[in-house]
C-alpha cells in the first residue's frame, strides 16, 4: 500500500465539492432571478441612455416635457401619505390584536382578509365609494347631514383618494409585521411602567415604540418600495391625470414612438427606489435584522 503523505493545499480544497452540490441546487432559482430581472433592468437602463444607437442624454432631456417633475412630486406625495396612513392604522390594529378580547379571532380575520384581495378589486371598490356625484362615501356624508364632497377636484385631492384607497389592501401586512414586534413585548413591562406612574402616551413612547422600531423600519422599507410601484390603483382611480411615475412610464411605453422616454422614466424610478432603500436601511438600522 502506498504511503499517503500529509495532504496538500489542493486536498483541502477538495472538500468544497460537497458545497458544489449545494450551489448547484441553488443555482436555477438564482439564475432565474438574475435572468429575468437584472438583464431586463440593464436593458432598460442601457436603452434609456441611447438614441439611435448613440450614447445620449436626449431621452432624459426631454423627460420634463412629458411631466417628469410633477409625476415625481405626485409619486412622493402618494407614497409618503399612504405610508403614514398605513402605519397609523396598522399600529392601531396591532395594538388591538395583542390584547385579549372577545371576538378577537373574528376581528383579526376581518382585518387580514384585504391582504388577499386583488389590487384591482380594491381599486374598483374605492372607485364606487369615491365618486364626485353620488357614490357610497357621499351617501354616508349626506345621510349624516353634511354637504357632499367633490373627491376628484384638484391634484391633491385626487392623490389623496389614491393614497387613502391604498390602505385597504396593504395595511394588513404592516399590521402583521408590527404585531410580531408588539407580541414580543412582555406585558409585565407595561404593568411595571404603569405602576411607576407612566401614562398611556408615555408608555407608548418609551416602551412600545422602541420595541417595534426595527420592525417598523422593515415595514417602511417593504411597503415604501411597493408604494413607489403602485400602478393598478392610480390607473383605475385617476387614470393618467394627475400623472405619477408609473403611469407616466406606462403611458409612454404603450406608444412605440415614446418608448425610450418610458425607459428613461423607469430608470429614474429605479434610482428613487434605491435611494429610498438605502436611506431606510441607514436610518432604521434594519440592516442588523437582515442578518
Amino acid at each position: 500500500m502506498e504511503v499517503q503523505e500529509e495532504p496538500s493545499i489542493r486536498d483541502t480544497f477538495k472538500m468544497s465539492r460537497k458545497y458544489l452540490i449545494y450551489i448547484l441546487m441553488a443555482a436555477p432559482a438564482i439564475a432565474y432571478v438574475i435572468g429575468l430581472s437584472i438583464f431586463p433592468a440593464i436593458t432598460v437602463i442601457y436603452d434609456s441612455f441611447h438614441v439611435n444607437g448613440q450614447l445620449s442624454l436626449r431621452n432624459y432631456a426631454s423627460l420634463p416635457g412629458y411631466g417628469l417633475y410633477p409625476s415625481i412630486v405626485n409619486t412622493l406625495i402618494v407614497s409618503v401619505g399612504a405610508l403614514i396612513i398605513q402605519v397609523v392604522l396598522a399600529l392601531a390594529i396591532a395594538m388591538v390584536m395583542v390584547k385579549p378580547f372577545k371576538g378577537s379571532k373574528i376581528f383579526s380575520t376581518i382585518v387580514i382578509i384585504p391582504f388577499g384581495v386583488s389590487t384591482i378589486v380594491s381599486a374598483f371598490a374605492f372607485s364606487l365609494i369615491f365618486q364626485n356625484v353620488g357614490g357610497f362615501a357621499n351617501g354616508i356624508i349626506v345621510a349624516l347631514g353634511f354637504k357632499p364632497v367633490t373627491w376628484f377636484s384638484s391634484t391633491l385631492s385626487d392623490l389623496g383618494v389614491v393614497m387613502f384607497s391604498d390602505f385597504w389592501k396593504n395595511t394588513p401586512l404592516v399590521a402583521l409585521i408590527l404585531y410580531g414586534g408588539l407580541s414580543s413585548v412582555s406585558p409585565s413591562l407595561y404593568e411595571s411602567a404603569s405602576m411607576d406612574g407612566a401614562g398611556p402616551l408615555s408608555r407608548f413612547v418609551h416602551i412600545t415604540l422602541p420595541n417595534i422600531a426595527p420592525l417598523l423600519s422593515i415595514a417602511l422599507l417593504v411597503r415604501g418600495v411597493s408604494e413607489f410601484n403602485i400602478f393598478a390603483l392610480p390607473l383605475v382611480l385617476i387614470g393618467y391625470h394627475p400623472l405619477i411615475l408609473n403611469t407616466l412610464i406606462y403611458e409612454n411605453y404603450s406608444t412605440l414612438a415614446t418608448r425610450p422616454i418610458s425607459y428613461a422614466a423607469a430608470t429614474v424610478l429605479l434610482a428613487i427606489i434605491m435611494v429610498y432603500s438605502i436611506l431606510v436601511l441607514r436610518i432604521g438600522g434594519a440592516k442588523q435584522y437582515a442578518q
Binding site: I34, N229, Y250, S262, A266, T267, L270, I273
Partner: peptide
C-alpha cells in the same frame, strides 16, 4: 432584486 420596480422589469 425583489425591490426592483415591477414596471421597469416587466416592460423589457
Amino acid at each position: 432584486i425583489n425591490m426592483m420596480p415591477g414596471l421597469v422589469i416587466a416592460i423589457p
